[in-house]
Simulated assay, not measured.
Amino acid sequence: MPVLSPSRSERLAALRAEVRAIESAGAAGVRECLPFEVDAIDARLAGGGLATAALHEITGARPEPGDDAAATLFIAGIAARLEGPVLWALSRRDLFAPGLALAGLGPSRILYAECGRDEDVLAVMEEGLRHGGLGAVVGEVGRVAMASTRRLQLAAEEGGTTALMLKRWRRNGEDPLLVPSAAVTRWRIACVPSGALAVPGIGRPRWRLELARQRGGEPFQLVMEGPDHEGRLALPAEPSNRSDQTDRKRLAA
Rank of each mutant, 00 (worst) to 15 (best):
L12Q: 06
G160A: 06
E127Y: 02
W207H: 09
T52C: 10
V138K: 11
L152N: 01
L164M: 14
E158R: 15
G47A: 11
W207D: 04
P239E: 01
V223Y: 08
A53C: 10
T59Y: 08
H56P: 12
E57N: 08
A70M: 13
L90P: 00
T59F: 08
A70V: 05
H229E: 15
W88V: 03
R20L: 15
I41C: 13
T162H: 07
L105M: 03
V179L: 13
R130Q: 05
V179M: 13
A70P: 11
G60C: 10
I58N: 04
A252M: 03
L105A: 03
R186H: 09
A103R: 08
M165R: 05
R143P: 03
P205T: 02
A17R: 09
A79T: 01
L55V: 01
L34D: 07
T149L: 01
G49R: 14
A252C: 01
L209I: 04
E225F: 05
E174G: 09
P85S: 00
L45A: 09
D94F: 12
G142A: 05
M224F: 13
G47I: 02
A237W: 07
G231F: 13
L166C: 07
V124W: 13
L15E: 12
V124N: 11
L45W: 06
S9H: 02
G84N: 05
A234F: 13
G173K: 04
I75S: 10
A101V: 02
E119V: 10
L50R: 04
H56Y: 13
L12C: 02
E140A: 06
I75G: 11
D175A: 11
A27G: 06
V192R: 05
L111R: 14
G142S: 12
G84H: 08
V3I: 11
L154D: 08
S243N: 03
V137E: 08
A53V: 04
G139W: 01
V86N: 02
A156S: 01
